[in-house]
Design a protein around this nucleic acid. Structure first.
Lengths: 169, 169
DNA sequence: ATACATTAAATGTAAATACATTATATTTGC
DNA sequence: GCAAATATAATGTATTTACATTTAATGTAT
């Protein structure tokens, strides 16, 4: 065991550990930022995620089931999130005729309009990002995050969400 | 307005927007991963953050006040988090003699031992990270996250937390 | 067909969280 | 020194969340 390999090992370990702590820190920071951004619009981050999933599929419906799968906060309750969105009339809920267990959810015009407004607010946030990162750096950061998560999601998958029509309903 | 500049603008916008969505996504992913990692140890991510802050200052005490400042989940209740940690005997709480409003918190031996165990578990997580990112990539990612947050935190600041002794108590 | 397993969504419940308010102590301005 | 402003921590409360359980519908095997 050479000194070199010792040093290298140490260096390795500390880079990854630093990254781990850094991501936790950044994750908190970003989550809070987004929460603050969403607050004036009266929805939570999770509700926002649901709305985005629904917009990605509009005008096709999405089953509660599928929402859960896409959310990767899988433990949180899509059913109750939809409830909240329903109260605000941002989505509509209808029974799925071919499977009476399932429930179809569609984003409403009001929901789409809200997302449009939020998009505008996010543009401001992106403005801050532009001051701090070049396009290349932003791309590199995106790519490295993909790598770290162990999957490379295309912008379509990430943002616009699947236009694949598996729809049975 | 040239076509080039139009295209460039579009490209810019989409890079940052993609990054924004990607970070939200990654933030969820990482947060969940860490939550799962911590669950067997019976503490939440926030409680873990508090413990790390306390360890960074050990054996000096940290005031509830300072914990709040360092947490950057500033809205969450350091007072109540300390309550929970107290119940588990992971910290001790004593009055600050020079300011009777303030409360000093110190991590206990039990708390330090718990963090040691968690460190070991995090090493496994770091192992996964090593498979997906080179050291250089990990460093780049850390650095870009620092840039994005608009501050460059040294590993000491991030992890071990300040040894600065402002202590009045 | 009937029992058993599986799937989908909703509900129950305890805990955590965001945020406002309160209680107490200290500092500041006069 | 005293009143007002500020700082510190704790508490109150509604909401959100994690997670388990329940209800109902569908699929599957015998």
């Amino acid at each position: 065991m050479s000194i070199e390999s010792d040093i290298r090992q140490t260096a390795f370990s500390s880079s990854y550990h630093r990254l781990l702590v850094n991501i936790l820190y950044s994750s908190n920071w970003l989550g809070n930022s987004q929460m603050q951004l969403l607050k004036p619009f009266g929805i939570t981050l999770q509700q926002f995620n649901v709305l985005r999933i629904l917009r990605g599929r509009f005008p096709d419906p999405v089953k509660v089931n599928e929402i859960t799968e896409r959310m990767l906060d899988k433990m949180s309750n899509a059913s109750r999130l939809v409830d909240k969105l329903l109260l605000k009339k941002l989505v509509e809920r209808t029974e799925c005729p071919s499977d009476r267990r399932a429930v179809n959810v569609i984003i409403t015009k009001k929901g789409l309009d809200l997302l449009t407004k939020i998009d505008a607010a996010q543009l401001q946030f992106e403005g801050i990002m532009e001051q701090r990162l070049t396009t290349d750096e932003a791309d590199t950061l995106s790519h490295l995050l993909d790598q770290l998560r162990g999957s490379v999601l295309t912008p379509t998958e990430l943002e616009l969400v699947q236009t694949e029509v598996e729809s049975a309903c």
